[in-house]
Design a protein around this nucleic acid. Structure first.
Length: 593
RNA sequence: GGUCCCGUAGAGCAGCUAGGAGUGCUCGCCACCCUGUCAAGGUGGAGGUCGCGGGUUCAAAUCCCGUCGGGACCGCCA
């Protein structure tokens, strides 16, 4: 037996007990005659005292992060030595025996919560980083989140079912990771971007309620909140409406926030339609922690001679504005900085007007171009006060202009300190458009082509595709999408109409998703579901800046794993055996030419 | 694919604008001292390809070009 007690669990109640502990040397304070060692195990830290014993001589040789076991007596500390900062600060272990279970080489960085270490170094020695309280807490939080969801879903008769990770491409639209197949050279598996099609087939399979904490893979570029492999809490149920899925989701997320953030989420959450969200916040994942809503000026500015605006208006587009409180006090350099900011985002610029702090008089490059009438009512129209700045965006494409203003709104929120970092603001965004334009003028599905149109549009989405709406819904928190889902098409006839409209031929559809279409033929129940981004949820709950903080062994920006150095080149033998150089005969001829 | 920031001892940084000997700070590491510390303290010591390559210069951590690595963002991606 390595130990009788856990270090962090000891208290004054254990005084006079003989205990054996095992753990790591978190820190030692050697006073010559007496030596203190902070012993850390997974449960916490306790102070061990060595004095006048054989063990004390061994203790002198201890170094940080040696793995040791200690036997001794639990003593109440002298009143003047009690440490309030330590959970076990009332007591200490008077050691009689010390065993070194494993020595530690000098550390690449200090395992100490107040020492900052670059992420690069931390990840290279992640096993040491995980000994620190912050990273360890993040992993434990994630474990509890998984448990909360699992328990609630299991209690509700949801069946946890695993789906393949070696499969064929699923239609999320991202690039697939591919795996060569030794037994069939030239054929490749794809790693799933999500279990989307499988969970629908599980509904056809009659389970009615399915969930899985599923690893998903997408071969796209990284961000602070993106990794090539990530985890979804994937849920699907039969005979459910959008409201059913929303109710379940709020119970799950509400429970997680209550237990892990101590926050009581007010259910039911507010719902915004996609269009409302775009109009008010310029985003389909609005941050509701602050105001500064967008104001549409298309109508107000009609008839303007300022070409930037009139061009957009005449093209049937949009002109809008967002107010920056106190923005008039910005220097010329700061205002120019906004132009660069907008250009970095692919916009031509960001027109602005500032209202003089004393007189309220509108000034700035745009002001000269607007009529007296337009200028006179502008402050009221946009809700600006003297001393504010107003940024404008105009575009023939309503969404482009709104997204620019939405991004400006977020930037204003940050720069002006309008965002309460302690606040949680949840909402749903619903009624997503069924289709959106592709670059080449066709139509595509913003989610995936299995999303059901809502009843209003199910019979006529082809007639007015730009306005057709779906049963798709996203749950949003503080401007982050926590999860999204939809009611699916369960009628193979409707599914065929969608494919027809998208210009996907019967052959193509059959080839890509034939197995799903076949499944839908056999009495498929109405069904729908949702998938939550576990990495993102845990990042928010732990207050981290990056999802790497809630992943045990994350990758860096280039898809590189600093710990294992993956990916690595393969040997010629592996290359040969995997059959990755297989060239189909027809292509061989082309290559010859 | 694009833009911006960073790279100096084991860790975290300063030095770079305005070129002049690897100059410095905090922590760690090693040795010794130290009987109530808890981010212990004291004395001494070791430790450097200034990411890499090229250029300018009498002289480059510092200026220029390229490149590699990391981070943030745009594109991309739910």
């Amino acid at each position: 037996m390595y130990r009788t007690h856990l270090a962090g669990a000891l208290s004054a109640a254990d005084v006079d007990q003989q205990v054996t502990l095992a753990g790591w040397v978190a820190r030692r304070r050697d006073h010559g005659g007496v030596e203190f060692v902070d012993l850390r195990d997974a449960s916490g830290v306790v102070q061990v005292v060595f004095r006048d014993s054989e063990a004390a001589k061994v203790a002198h040789e201890l170094r940080n992060e040696f793995c040791i076991s200690v036997t001794g007596t639990v003593n109440r500390r002298p009143a003047e030595s009690v440490n309030d900062k330590l959970a076990t600060g009332e007591i200490e272990i008077n050691a009689t025996e010390l065993k070194v279970l494993s020595e530690s080489a000098p550390l690449p960085f200090q395992i100490d919560d107040h020492v900052e270490v670059s992420e690069d170094v931390r990840l290279r020695h992640r096993y040491l980083d995980l000994r620190r309280s912050g990273p360890a807490a993040a992993m434990r939080l994630r474990s509890r989140a998984n448990q909360i969801f699992r328990n609630l879903l299991s209690e509700d008769d949801y069946v946890e079912i695993e789906t393949p990770t070696l499969t064929r491409s699923t239609p999320e639209g991202a690039r697939d990771f591919l795996v060569p197949v030794r037994l069939q050279p030239g054929s490749w598996y794809a790693l799933p971007q999500s279990p989307q099609l499988f969970k629908q087939l599980l509904m056809v399979g009659g389970f009615e309620k399915y969930f899985q904490i599923a690893r998903c893979y997408r071969d796209e570029d990284f961000r602070a909140d993106r990794q090539p492999e990530f985890t979804q809490l994937d849920i699907e149920a039969s005979f459910v409406t959008q409201e059913d899925v929303i109710e379940l989701s709020e119970r799950l997320i509400g429970a997680a926030w209550k237990e892990l953030a101590g926050y009581e989420m007010a259910s039911p959450l507010p719902k915004l339609t996609y269009h409302e969200s775009m109009d008010r916040f310029g985003s389909d994942r609005p941050d509701l922690r602050f105001g500064q809503e967008l104001v549409e000026l298309t109508e107000y500015l009609s008839g303007t001679e300022f070409r930037v605006f009139s061009g957009a208006i005449e093209a049937g587009g949009y002109v809008g504005a967002v107010v920056m409180p106190g923005g008039a006090s910005q220097t010329r350099k700061e205002l120019d900085g906004w132009q660069d900011w907008a250009k970095a985002r692919g916009a031509k610029g960001l027109a602005y007007i500032v209202f003089n702090a004393e007189t309220g008089e509108p000034k700035g490059p745009v002001a000269k171009n607007l009529s007296e009438e337009h200028l006179a009512g502008l402050a009221d129209a946009v809700g600006a006060k003297a001393g504010d700045a107003v940024f404008f965006a105009a575009s023939p494409d309503r969404r482009d202009a709104q997204e620019l203003l939405g991004a400006a709104r977020l930037e204003i929120g940050k720069r002006c300190g309008l965002i309460d970092p302690e606040a949680w603001a949840f909402c749903w965004v619903v009624d997503f458009p069924m289709f959106e334009r592709t670059d080449d003028g066709g139509w595509t599905s913003p989610h995936h082509p299995f999303t059901s149109p809502n009843p209003e549009w199910i019979d006529k989405f082809e007639a007015d595709p730009a306005n057709a709406l779906t049963y798709a819904y996203d749950m949003v928190c503080n401007g982050n999408e926590l999860g999204g889902g939809s009611i699916r098409i369960h009628d193979s006839k409707v599914q065929s109409r969608v494919f027809d409209f998208l210009g996907i031929s019967k052959e193509e559809a059959q080839e890509k998703f034939g197995f799903l279409l076949d499944g839908l033929k056999y009495g498929a129940p109405p069904h729908g579901g949702i998938a939550f981004g576990m990495d993102r949820i845990c990042t928010l709950l732990s207050g981290a800046d990056s999802i790497r903080e809630v992943i045990a062994f994350p990758k860096t920006g280039g898809g590189f794993d600093p710990l294992t150095s993956a990916p690595t080149p393969i040997t010629p033998e592996q290359r040969e055996e995997a059959g990755i150089d297989f060239v189909p005969e027809s292509e061989e001829h082309e290559l010859d030419e």
